[in-house]
Design a protein around this nucleic acid. Structure first.
Lengths: 239, 239
DNA sequence: CAGAATCCCATTCGATACTG
DNA sequence: CAGTATCGAATGGGATTCTG
């Protein structure tokens, strides 16, 4: 990012002013120029389930400062990864939303996560944002097992709602404004935080135990919930 | 990386001393802690075709300083991505080699590259290292077309030699110490630099033209070379 | 409250010089 | 060849302030 700062790459000769960029035709190197700065890819991750406001991003990315978030959003917009958009819906506000191409980054984000989760040093007990949880499901679902299974699952995690529509081995997930009782979901997982759902999906703790000890609530078809959980497996560690 | 510096994550409470780490269970966030610093992932990329020495890395990563390379290698070793190994083969020396898990990062590296290459801002005319070229072939080959085609192709690019063994739609590539005439390759591409081969593979310029104007030499079965080139296509740009 | 702008300090980067 | 040592410049991040 920072594509149009003071001194852009002079006549395409491969490097910015201070050798700050890589000057490498390799797509990976270019990706790192676009999203390689601290926080950038996590911002993209948080936008993967739809546009978010500035303050939403600050909330789910604890530790990012307003200054850095501002800089990153500007850089990602200059890079064509996201666009700032005015909305008038609930109240006049602006949301940051991925461009079509920005959404294509999901595969790379997933594969980075799949790889890193296989490190023995990875600590899955840390906090997990609702969007992080949703993306982890899309990463870790077993596509073979999923083929034989259609379902509509609702999630309400830390106040954010999503609907996952399992079909043809695919698991598209969208944000849902209201996951009320007139929902089409056959089963709804409600949890105060991401790791609670993760404990059920990946930790393979019995649902009842996660309900009793971590505040999960599974509403609707509990047998379906069990089958759904059976679709996921953490990748094995490697050393 | 920097996993065991002065103040490691205190009792696993999610953040390092200065909030430098993300404290996020999301595998992607952890990946960024491991390889998210400037240059790290490009070092991993350059090791993807086998171990390299310190000076090899400095040469193919123009712009990286000895200091930063030293720091990154130490960090990546602490993270379990690579290992320093003593060799005595040609001369006593030490090489940095990916661990088994380190090699698994290739998918993520490829997907980052595939994504970024679809940006209209990507400039494919920049320099391309031999390893970058080899990885780009593994990224951009059409697996469907490749299924019906077995071949052994040699490459000698900027003094580095590789053999690619196309079989069952897979394209494993290994470094080759000598790509002499007693080689098993059915066709050999020789070029002074990566972009020359890229011009033939992805630019779809006629072989004869790339030979005449860019210094490519195609030895052996030229018809096979044409068929091989036909397996590759740049992904379309999106906006 | 949303978000941009400013100030300040710690860390990091990169170039150069130097060493076993 | 394989790194260390050093130093100025750039960046990162927190706190504060300003604007709507």
């Amino acid at each position: 990012m920072k594509l149009q700062k003071e001194t852009e790459s002079p006549k395409g000769t491969a490097e910015g002013k201070h050798g700050r960029w890589y000057g490498d035709a390799c797509g990976t190197a270019f990706a790192l120029e676009l999203v390689g700065e601290r926080w950038s890819l996590l911002i993209v991750r948080e936008l993967m389930m739809g546009g978010r406001r500035f303050s939403d991003l600050r909330r789910v990315l604890p530790g990012i400062s307003a200054k850095v978030l501002t800089e990153r959003l500007a850089g990602l917009e200059a890079a064509g990864v996201l666009k700032k958009r005015q909305i008038a819906d609930p109240v006049p506000a602006q949301v940051y939303e991925l461009t079509e191409w920005g959404y294509y980054a999901e595969v790379a984000i997933r594969e980075l996560g799949r790889w890193a989760a296989r490190s023995p040093l990875h600590d899955p007990s840390l906090p997990l944002t609702p969007v992080g949880l949703m993306l982890s499901m899309r990463t870790l679902i077993d596509p073979e097992k999923a083929k034989a299974f259609d379902a509509v699952i609702g999630f309400e995690v830390a106040g954010e709602s999503f609907v996952a529509e399992l079909k043809d081995g695919q698991l598209p997930i969208r944000r849902s404004s209201s996951l009320g009782d007139p929902s089409s979901a056959q089963v709804i997982f409600r949890a105060p935080a991401g790791p609670v759902v993760a404990a059920a999906l990946y930790g393979k703790l019995p649902i009842a135990e996660v309900e009793a000890e971590m505040g999960l609530k599974v509403e609707g078809d509990r047998e379906l919930a069990e089958r759904y959980i059976g679709l996921f497996a953490l990748p094995e560690k490697i050393v």
